[in-house]
Computed example of a mutant assay.
Amino acid sequence: MATTEAVPGAAARRRSLLRPLAFAATLGFVLALLFGVPWWSLVMAGNDWPAAVQVGGTLVFALALVMFPVTMFLGHGRRVDWAARIGDTILGAVWILFVWAVIGDVLRLGMLVGGVDDPVRSRVAAGFTAVVALGLGVWGYREAMRVPRVRRVEVTIPRLGKGLDGLKIVQLTDTHYGPIDRVRWSQGVTEVVNSLGADIVAHTGDIADGTVAQRVEQAAPLGDVRAGLARVYVTGNHEYFGEAQGWLDHMRALGWEPLHNRHIVVERGGDRLVVAGVDDRTAAGTGLEGHRADHAQALDGADPDLPVLLLAHQPKQIDAAVAHGIDLQISGHTHGGQIWPFHYLVRVDQPVVQGLTRHGERTQLFTSRGAGFWGPPFRVFAPSEITQLTLRSAR
């Protein structure tokens, strides 16, 4: 009996020891690829650079490799903003370099087939990688830091009453107020939103990375947002990294309606629309009391004959929306991939990366690319947006 009990216990201890080792090994492998591929392509390979260039380039990559995990731990583990700014920038820069170094190596292979010898072949590939990565980095930074452009989309909802035809919903999502102080950016976003004359303004989560106290100045312009019928908000997954209930309370204090698994009804021209919201799908796993995505609770007491607009942070929550007969779900979360070609990885986790899609017979989903950015202050081939959704009745 004692032997039978000891074996499972020993196996459990071995598994508990192996997990951190496996994680460390995986992380080490990923970092080796991210930093090693561009280092080899730009500095070594067959470039035949002078020794001083090879040593200097190697030191730069080695310093970045050492600084990256340290600054990410301090920045996002300990919430030290200056460290987060450095770590996030390194992450974005090395991702861009890695992608274009791989593409440069394909170019190098093509030149090899074409008979071009080293060091010319490798230097051309290295020059291509450096120029494109630098250009995209500068452009991507400007794209991330600018006030988003407005994206206009019309959505036909068959059950929508004629009195609500032309209802304007402005969706704001993934503002991600964070380590970079963007008070002026936030003010600019509010000015754009107010210029659109929305009936409903909806923030679909990921307001900030951090607590209310840390980001209160950046979030303050949200209090000046205007809407004819309602301003509504749901939590995203990043609220649950910081202070979800605090953000719900703060948005209420700013005059917004937090749709914490609840709904309101808006009316225009004698017709009504249910506007519901659910918590982010990660909420239940946080252990925070009363927080979970609960569609049944959100729709409790709603007239089943009325059309329903649902705010849910992640597109992945669309299956539950279909099951509950939602007419239109609006989501964010994906950032459109943020830095190309990361959208391919996003697509593995989410059913949609961006845009208007249909799911089932009734339900439509609009996924915004978001207004801000998370982590790396870059957007490459994934522009930010403030979305104006105009609802049309089929009647």
Rank of each mutant, 00 (worst) to 15 (best):
Ser16Val: 14
Pro20Gly: 04
Pro20Ala: 05
Leu21Phe: 12
Leu21Ala: 13
Ala22Phe: 08
Phe23Leu: 13
Ala24Leu: 12
Thr26Met: 13
Gly28Ser: 05
Leu31Phe: 12
Ala32Trp: 13
Ala32Cys: 14
Leu34Asp: 07
Leu34Val: 10
Gly36Ala: 08
Gly36Cys: 07
Val37Gln: 07
Trp39Ser: 08
Ser41Met: 11
Leu42Ala: 05
Leu42Ile: 07
Met44Cys: 12
Met44Arg: 11
Met44Pro: 15
Met44Lys: 15
Ala45Thr: 13
Asn47Arg: 15
Asp48Glu: 15
Pro50Ser: 07
Pro50Asp: 07
Pro50Tyr: 05
Ala51Glu: 13
Ala52Cys: 15
Val55Pro: 11
Gly57Lys: 06
Thr58Arg: 08
Leu59Phe: 12
Val60His: 01
Val60Leu: 02
Phe61Met: 00
Ala62Arg: 13
Leu63Tyr: 06
Leu65Met: 10
Val66Ile: 01
Met67Gln: 10
Met67Ile: 14
Val70Glu: 12
Met72Gln: 06
Phe73Val: 11
Arg78Ala: 09
Arg78Thr: 07
Arg79Tyr: 13
Arg79Phe: 12
Val80Ile: 14
Asp81Met: 11
Asp81Ala: 10
Arg85Ala: 08
Ile86Arg: 01
Ile86Gly: 02
Gly87Pro: 05
Asp88Ser: 04
Asp88Cys: 03
Thr89Gly: 04
Ile90Leu: 11
Ile90Cys: 07
Ala93Leu: 14
Ile96Glu: 05
Leu97Asp: 06
Phe98Gln: 05
Phe98Cys: 06
Trp100Met: 05
Trp100Asn: 05
Val102Tyr: 02
Gly104Cys: 02
Asp105Met: 11
Asp105Ser: 15
Val106Cys: 06
Val106Tyr: 04
Arg108Met: 09
Arg108Glu: 10
Leu109Glu: 15
Val116Trp: 02
Val116Met: 05
Asp117Val: 13
Asp117Thr: 14
Pro119Gln: 00
Arg123Tyr: 06
Ala125Tyr: 05
Ala125Pro: 08
Gly127His: 01
Thr129Ile: 03
Ala130Arg: 01
Ala133Pro: 03
Ala133Lys: 00
Leu136Gln: 00
